[in-house]
């Protein structure tokens, strides 16, 4: 079966999962308080940052720190549980489809769901920035190219994390462990970012990228340049390793049974 037809089948499976609502709800909840408290952006507490950048970065911070990883974990649960109900995966494995290919298609769906949520976040950002500008009489809107570039970077930084979560979801069959490890790994990500070995911890990548943007907008808060060198090879290595393990072990318990 071709990659495209597999992809369209996987999309069909998501049809009645209500995942769109689950991805949308945190986005809406995130921007409502930041519109209501838009006047707080003028009080920068001694940090030299323009209010419009403050609005953008404060808004994205909660999203990138907690909700982006948590949404990925929820999506992995969705992708694995829809197959486990009524032995769906067993039926898929009896078809002439390569399990590795199926695994990678599912990973692609996971990334596409994250993209969908990021798109919603950007739309919500523009709506709420326009609303805040209207209420406060100050222009909060930033250049769309800048916003898109930062959002694309954050999303690219989330790929290794998504690969690790997907590996956990395929390897660990007991949902409490795969979900629990995923959610628990988010909690110390800010702590890890302050250590020297942060580049070994994929859950802190998107937050690191956002913090460097913060550093660029407000000098002195954080580093202004991304340290590519130990990080990029390690990130690529983690992604490839996690995906390879997931592809090899995909459906292992179903095949043994």
């Amino acid at each position: 079966m071709s990659f495209c037809s597999l992809l369209s089948i996987e999309f069909l499976k998501l049809k009645r999962s209500k995942i769109g609502l689950l991805l949308l709800a945190p986005v809406v909840m995130m921007w409502v308080p930041s519109v209501l408290n838009a006047d707080m952006n003028f009080d920068t507490r001694g940090i030299a940052i323009a209010p419009e950048y403050n609005f953008f970065i404060q808004g994205f911070m909660g999203m990138v720190w907690f909700m982006l990883p948590a949404s990925l974990v929820i999506c992995t649960v969705l992708l694995t549980q829809t197959e486990r109900a009524n032995k769906g995966l067993l039926k898929m494995l009896s078809l002439p489809v390569s399990p590795a290919k199926l695994c990678l298609v599912k990973f692609l769906i996971l990334l596409l769901l994250a993209v969908a949520q990021l798109g919603m976040t950007i739309c919500a950002y523009y709506i709420s920035a326009a609303a805040a500008s209207h209420i406060q009489g100050y222009d909060f809107l930033l250049d769309p190219l800048f916003v898109l570039r930062v959002a694309a970077c954050l999303y690219a930084g989330a790929i290794p994390m998504a690969a690790v979560f997907w590996m956990l979801a395929t390897l660990v069959r007991t949902p409490i462990f795969s979900v629990g490890i995923g959610l628990a790994s988010i909690v110390p990500s800010v702590l890890v970012l302050n250590t020297k070995i942060w580049f070994l911890y994929p859950m802190s990548y998107p937050f690191y990228l956002l913090m460097t943007e913060y550093g660029k907008a407000a000098p002195g808060v954080y580093e202004t340049q991304v340290q590519w060198l130990p990080w990029l090879p390690v990130a690529v290595g983690i992604t490839i390793l996690a995906l390879a393990i997931a592809a090899l072990r995909f459906g292992a318990t179903e095949r043994r049974a």
Binding site: S17, K18, I19, L22, A25, P26, M29, M30, P33, N37, G62, F66, M67, A70, V73, I74, C75, V77, L78, Q81, P175, V179, L183
Partner: peptide, 21 residues
């Protein structure tokens, strides 16, 4: 009925409470 829905609601509630002033 679906675990991802209840899990999602729980996680969203935790998230909302952390970002509210």
């Amino acid at each position: 009925k679906n675990m991802w829905v209840s899990l999602g609601i729980g996680v969203i509630l935790v998230f909302v409470m952390t970002i509210l002033p």
